[in-house]
């Protein structure tokens, strides 16, 4: 059963990944990429990495939501009205991607995977956090808070005078203007 679910997810992930480069609409490419990532995140759920899987889905969906805006803003064919291609530098890209695939597949197949020792911990999320962060937990927590505060305040400062700003009280230069 698990194997069947894994195969379905794997096929969906790869097929959606291929779709990203074959559809001729930026919107569809973005959604296909999101579907691919969701399939990968769901596959993580199969190995009981619940937190990692769900957070992957959360992050990727959010990212694709934002990316849709920029993809459509900057790409040459937003609506699919003109022929376009997502492929550039075809030969080089093909060589690199086949090389990367062979390397990763060989690694997965040839590595002597260790047998499981002991039992999985009851709280996998906590164990994972401690394995990744270890003694640096406090530092990482403080850094993340500082980073977050920096990002928010930078954005607030940068958009201090947005397009609609000051509409509560008309700005002085507007009041006297009007040619």
């Amino acid at each position: 059963m698990l194997t069947a679910v894994f195969w379905v997810l794997a096929v969906v992930a790869v097929a959606a990944g291929i779709a990203v480069f074959t559809v001729d609409s930026m919107a569809r490419a973005t959604v296909a990429l999101a579907v691919s990532f969701v399939a990968v995140g769901t596959a993580l759920l199969l190995i009981d990495a619940g937190y990692l899987g769900v957070i992957t889905i959360l992050m990727m969906l959010m990212e694709m939501g934002i990316m849709a805006v920029f993809m459509i803003m900057y790409m040459m064919n937003p609506g699919g009205l003109m022929p376009m291609s997502m492929l550039h530098n075809k030969r080089g890209a093909l060589a690199i991607s086949i090389g990367a695939f062979v390397l990763l597949a060989a690694g997965a197949l040839l590595t002597p995977w260790p047998q499981r020792r002991g039992e999985p911990p009851s709280d996998v999320t906590r164990a994972l956090g401690e394995a990744v962060m270890g003694s640096k937990m406090l530092v990482m927590m403080s850094v993340s808070a500082v980073l977050f505060a920096t990002m928010v305040s930078a954005l607030v400062l940068a958009t201090g005078r947005g397009r609609y700003d000051g509409d509560e009280a008309p700005a002085a230069e507007d009041a006297g203007g009007g040619a």
Binding site: A34, G50, Y51, V54, I57, L61
Partner: peptide, 27 residues
């Protein structure tokens, strides 16, 4: 599930793309 709260959060984020696609698709 042990991550029920994150599940809820991830799904409400799924609405970002969903609503956007509903708006986009109508042309």
């Amino acid at each position: 599930p042990p991550v029920g709260l994150v599940w809820f959060n991830a799904l409400d984020v799924a609405l970002w793309l969903t609503v956007w696609a509903a708006g986009w698709g109508a042309n």
